[in-house]
Amino acid sequence: MTTSANQLLEVRGLRKYFGSGSHPVRAVDDVNFCVNEGETLGLVGESGSGKSTIGRLLTRLIDPTGGQMIYRANGAEKDLAALSASAYRPLRSQIQIIFQDPYASLNPRMRIRDVIAEALDTHGLARGAARTPRIHELLQQVGLRPEHADRFAHEFSGGQRQRIGIARALAVQPRFIVADEPLSALDVSIQAQVVNLLGTLKQELGLTLLFISHDLDVVEYLCDRVVVLYLGRVMEVGPTEAIYARPLHPYTRALLEAAPIPDPAQRRTIPLLKGDLPSPANPPSGCVFRTRCPRVEAACERADMRLREVSPGRFTACWRDDSQ
């Protein structure tokens, strides 16, 4: 995949297999993409496509089976996949994660001030008298009030708890944040507020985001580029506007077609996805999407699945030249 001068993170041949023997579960299988400084990259796909696993790999909550995760910052280049736990620890302040379930990620026995202070203490930030003003500043930054610092997690709504999770991630002044489906546990009425908050913080703080989601409308609104995953593999990569206007891979087209249509008068012209997601322990040969593809041909069984660049910045794993 073509690299760019402002690349913050490059993923090369990333793999994560679970289990042993001849048929391990291939949760992530030879994934390649990059994240540019200051952008929001969307990671989309069905449940079971490997989105959250990639987020946990990038933050080293789990270890990869193989591949590289090249992180470029402050003139240095480090392979996150090759670092030991102790060698990775100094980078944890630069690479943070916002979890899907805000309540499960907050200690119910700790007041919010202690939740945020724990992050500050771990990385040696805002000690002593400077700690309380910094905690209040972070709470206000995410739309909460200073007095909220003395409450427990159960005293907040879901949207407020997610704001606390964002404040905790921001406490260590990160450069790169993985947002792992941060809206899926929230009411629809609250989701737009959190999306707008993330967009505002990105601009104000110069953050780079990997936004993992199954909500294609939110991805279209928030993300600069999109990576489409299926069964642990990348099907398509490109600028958001271009992908939504003209998807190159049949799977991307099927995902967009399956999204809800607000106008009941509109009719679908492309069949929706058929069948179930194959087992990642026994993926189909050739193109892994061929068992559900509406345009499958005999050649798909032996097709080359590697991403290829069909136009500047547009990549697809479909072997056809007439991908449209």
Score class of each variant (00 low, 15 high):
Thr2Tyr: 08
Ala5Phe: 14
Gln7Tyr: 09
Leu9His: 03
Leu14Asn: 02
Arg15Tyr: 11
Tyr17Gln: 11
Ser20Asp: 04
His23Glu: 11
Val25Gln: 08
Cys34Asn: 08
Val35Met: 06
Glu37Ile: 06
Thr40Pro: 02
Ser47Gln: 13
Gly55Val: 03
Leu57His: 00
Pro64Ala: 11
Gln68Val: 06
Gly75Cys: 08
Glu77His: 13
Asp79Thr: 12
Ala81Asn: 07
Ser84Thr: 14
Ser86Arg: 10
Ser86Asn: 09
Pro90Arg: 05
Ile97Val: 12
Asp101Ala: 08
Ala104Arg: 11
Ser105Phe: 07
Ile116Leu: 05
Glu118Ala: 10
Ala130Met: 12
Ala130Val: 10
Arg131Phe: 04
Thr132Trp: 03
Pro133Ile: 05
Arg134Leu: 04
Ile135Ser: 00
Leu138Gln: 00
Gln141Met: 15
Arg145Pro: 03
Glu147Thr: 11
His148Arg: 07
His154Met: 08
Glu155Lys: 13
Ser157His: 10
Arg163Tyr: 14
Arg163Ile: 06
Gly165Asn: 07
Ile166Gly: 00
Arg168Val: 04
Gln173Ser: 15
Pro174Ala: 06
Ser184Thr: 12
Ala192Gln: 09
Val195Ala: 01
Val195Ile: 15
Val195Gly: 00
Thr200Trp: 10
Thr200Tyr: 11
Leu201Lys: 07
Gln203Ser: 14
Gln203Cys: 12
Phe211His: 03
His214Pro: 02
Asp215Ile: 02
Glu220Pro: 01
Leu231Val: 10
Val234Ile: 13
Met235Cys: 15
Met235Ala: 13
Val237Glu: 02
Gly238Val: 04
Thr240Glu: 04
Pro247Lys: 04
Pro247Leu: 02
Leu248Tyr: 04
His249Asn: 09
Pro250Lys: 06
Thr252Phe: 03
Thr252Ser: 11
Arg253Tyr: 07
Ala254Val: 13
Ala254Cys: 14
Glu257Val: 11
Glu257Lys: 01
Ala258His: 02
Gln266Phe: 15
Pro271Phe: 11
Leu272Glu: 09
Leu273Gln: 05
Leu277Gly: 01
Pro278Cys: 04
Asn282Ser: 15
Arg292Cys: 04
Cys293Arg: 03
Ala298Asn: 05
Ala299Gly: 02
Met305Ala: 12
Glu309Ile: 07
Val310Arg: 07
Val310Ile: 15
Ser311Glu: 15
Arg314Val: 02
Asp322Arg: 15
